[in-house]
């Protein structure tokens, strides 16, 4: 196609109707998005009387005591540690396994490759409850037969979390490795590097943004997971998701402390997400749009 001279590169200014539609719609969406965030933040600095009477938009006075008291109202630090251990272990295990698997799928053609890809893609879409029930029974019976308790421990929870972190990691990383030029591998092979050392020394560093994306996303999902954790944990292995939910469903709730706790446990993942937003958006959309 011949180059057309760029007549009016910016087309005529959008009409008034468009500008007003945009203004009104975006204002409504900002209000909708902001409302719960505002409630969460302001309620977390309210004294208890403010959240036990009718709702106040402005705190009657600002106090930081919810942030202090929340640690003793529920064993929050304990939940925090459990969530951190479970989420980071599940992330680490699935990322490491997925890097090898994704390399095989991306760089080799072998019988069974397509079967593996289809299995990974479809299990990602299956309802979690389908796996939870049998996994719980398997764990109980393993515990019964061998004495290794999995059904209510962090180890068991880490394994169940692989049901969703692993397929996701594999799927995304295959996409990433496909986008890394094969010439890189070939050059390394010419230099006498074996496949494994090519993977670890050349491909993994080149795929670092993809690996970080996958890790952050796995961590976020595991950090917020409720279904498995509500069945597979007891008092010692309870995670934040279930611990906070259980407390919030009680009759007499200190809502200001709950909001403070919610804010504190949200900050790590929200900050991580926003910092890596660029990578995450590219990775997620590559995974879901493909």
């Amino acid at each position: 196609m011949p180059d057309r001279p760029a007549v009016r590169r910016r087309p005529t200014a959008p009409p008034k109707s468009f500008l007003w539609t945009r203004r009104i719609c975006l204002t409504v969406l900002v209000a909708f998005t902001t409302l719960p965030l505002y409630v969460m933040i302001t309620s977390s600095i309210k004294p208890l009387v403010d959240v036990e009477s009718s709702f106040r938009w402005i705190p009657s006075r600002v106090t930081l005591s919810p942030y202090v008291d929340m640690w003793s109202t529920v064993p929050l630090a304990h939940y925090f540690a459990n969530s951190a251990i479970v989420a980071s272990s599940a992330t680490a295990i699935s990322v490491v396994i997925a890097v090898f698997a994704a390399y095989a799928v991306s760089r080799y053609r072998f019988p069974g490759r397509q079967l593996f890809r289809i299995t990974v893609l479809s299990t990602q879409m299956f309802p979690g409850i389908l796996f939870l029930l049998p996994l719980f029974l398997i764990f109980v019976n393993i515990g019964n037969a061998t004495g290794i308790e999995l059904s209510t421990t962090r180890l068991g929870l880490i394994i169940t979390y692989l049901t969703f972190t692993l397929p996701f990691s594999v799927w995304l990383l295959v996409g990433y490795l496909d986008s890394i030029p094969r010439e890189l591998d070939e050059a390394a092979a010419v230099d006498g590097s074996g496949p494994l050392s090519t993977l670890l020394r050349i491909v993994v560093p080149a795929a670092r943004p993809g690996i970080i994306t996958v890790a952050v996303y796995c961590f976020m999902t595991a950090w917020g997971e409720v279904l498995f954790a509500s069945v597979m944990t007891d008092d010692t292995s309870r995670t934040l998701a279930v611990g906070l939910r259980d407390y919030a469903s009680e009759n007499d709730v200190y809502w200001n402390q709950i909001m403070a706790a919610s804010l504190v446990v949200s900050i790590p993942v929200v900050v991580g997400f926003l910092l890596l937003q660029r990578y995450l958006v590219a990775g997620l959309t590559a995974g879901s749009v493909k």
Partner: peptide, 27 residues
């Protein structure tokens, strides 16, 4: 080699997806 690279992932897929699904159907 590709099968070796894939082995851990396949093991875990079996452990967390395939076996539970079959057990679920059996139950």
């Amino acid at each position: 080699l590709p099968y070796l690279l894939l082995a851990p992932a396949v093991c875990f897929e079996l452990l967390v997806h395939i076996v539970p699904m079959l057990v679920g159907i059996w139950i």
